[in-house]
Design a protein around this nucleic acid. Structure first.
Lengths: 148, 148
DNA sequence: CCGTATCCTTCTAGATACTG
DNA sequence: CAGTATCTAGAAGGATACGG
């Protein structure tokens, strides 16, 4: 597939820019990426209370709000188990999982940015805002590709 | 290169999420993507006044503000020609150009999203917010790869 | 031409208290 | 457990006027 968005056609430029903005809007929100990454890592539906623990620093209201928006945008699926006490699980949809390459690409760019700026990349804890006392060196390359 | 961020190691999860958030923060701001896409398309430095025309709907204050942030993040370079009347040009840095694949990936995801939701993708003009009366079908695949 | 300074409005995050 | 409702502070966007 060769859709070259760097093409100079002005009509298309607006088109590409719009498509990208649209996509980014879906990902904007302080906690969405963290939520998506956590759901990716889980590889299985996650209960609300569990998610609340894993998305460090988030509060109930924000978590629910962001989940709702992600659900509305078709990125996460919400499953309610009608029982007492209530049980609700969240998982990525197919569309949500399709974000993988984009996230990967952004991560790679983040690495490049760090390499180019040379210095300490201001690694900050997403939750507290505290600087994490760890250099931004990529983890070992010898990870299992994706443990089943 | 095989950095699998979908790996389950909790320490790494936070790491990936943080890296991605960091990257996204750089791209957030109503006009940044449009600016970047325009600078990409131009393939040459663009004067401020010219950029103001191409980023449809932006006002001076916002354009300057976003450009400043992009400059601070090492994505655009600003060149001042000391003359009267003043002349200032903006261009993408190497780091800025490196965003290409990420933007491309996001665009592809936007397409997938539209295909999956089936319906009209609410193509909205970035400037006015008006719905653009055009279907979101990818432009012809037979474009020149990148006209020199 | 390119930018700064002010002022105003809207949007977002978040703290807190309450409910089926 | 998994929400809803309310309120507040601050950030972001934007209109407008002025300056080198």
């Amino acid at each position: 597939m060769k859709r070259d968005w760097r093409n100079g056609n002005p009509e298309q430029q607006l088109f590409w820019a719009t498509a990208t903005c649209e996509t980014l809007r879906v990902l904007e929100g302080k906690w969405k990426i963290v939520i998506i990454v956590q759901l990716f890592a889980a590889k299985a539906p996650v209960r609300f209370s569990e998610l609340e623990k894993r998305v460090v620093g988030v509060n109930q209201k924000m978590l629910i709000q962001q989940l709702k928006e992600l659900e509305k945008d078709g990125i996460v699926a919400r499953t309610v188990y009608p029982q007492v006490p209530p049980k609700v699980e969240y998982a990525l949809t197919e569309l949500g999982r399709a974000l993988g390459p984009s996230i990967e690409s952004l991560i790679n760019w983040a690495f490049l940015k760090c390499e180019m700026s040379g210095g300490t990349p201001q690694q900050v804890d997403a939750a507290t805002g505290a600087v994490v006392g760890r250099q931004l060196s990529p983890p070992t390359e010898t990870l299992e590709p994706r443990p089943k």
